[in-house]
Amino acid sequence: MRSLRALLLLGAVLLCVSSCRYGLDELFGRPSPVDERVADQSIPAPVAPLVADPANYVFIATADTHFGATEDPTNAASFRALVSSQGASFVVIAGDLVETGIAAEYARFTAWTASLGVPVYVTAGNHDLYNEGWTSYRSTLGRSAYSFTVGGRSFYFVDSGNGTVGQAQLDMLRASFLNDANPKVIVSHYPLYDGPDALYYRLTDTAERAALIDLYANGHVELLLEGHRHVTHETILGSMDEWLCSSLVGAAGKGSCVIVTVSGGQIVSVVPTTY
């Protein structure tokens, strides 16, 4: 009985300590919620990649890099080698770029992305916002919600870092889609659906999901690239292909991502790859 009590006490202390690391004082309301982040048009938008042949290229999607302040994720170096070997034109990362949102982690993350040798496009995950992380995100990476076009295909980066896209961003997406007939790729952190047993680790508002599925399916979205669960998983949603991209963290050699090949202007393959 005494050992059980000690175990419970130890668990409570560990929970408290680990939570404090993630900014427990913001438990009931993180600063800069998604409606504010996406409405700030003073933040510069990333420049679209210069792809030599916009009808034929490869890009790599991953997520959950979780950079710490003192060391890179286990598979950071091997991912760099993969980007080079695949001849990727650019990389997309679906959020949780850093672990606790502090500036030192963002510095380490940006140093790594610069070393990849190709443009890197990101959006925010829940970890990126801890400890007022948006301040560092904003100054080092720019907008968390934006779009660009490569050839005849549009890429939309959707900020779901708070577990919701929010009404402001939903309205902005609706307005953008009205003037964009291109096939589209969506990159966001929280999964839109991810199968019947995904439980809590996805967008949990059923009204929001209904609105997004309607918008995406009628707006010619063909590919969704997401993260959050640290698994690689595909779900078919009508004509849309939803892929969860795995994490850079974990055992050496167990990094995972998806490699997307565009040929003749069409997405011809989405291949999960371990490196």
């Binding site: 939570s19 829940n126 809590y200």
Partner: peptide, 15 residues
């Protein structure tokens, strides 16, 4: 009040 996500400490009131 409804939260977009609470248990991953994301804390955003959205309803």
């Amino acid at each position: 009040i409804h939260y977009g996500d609470f248990f991953t400490l994301t804390a955003c009131v959205d309803g």
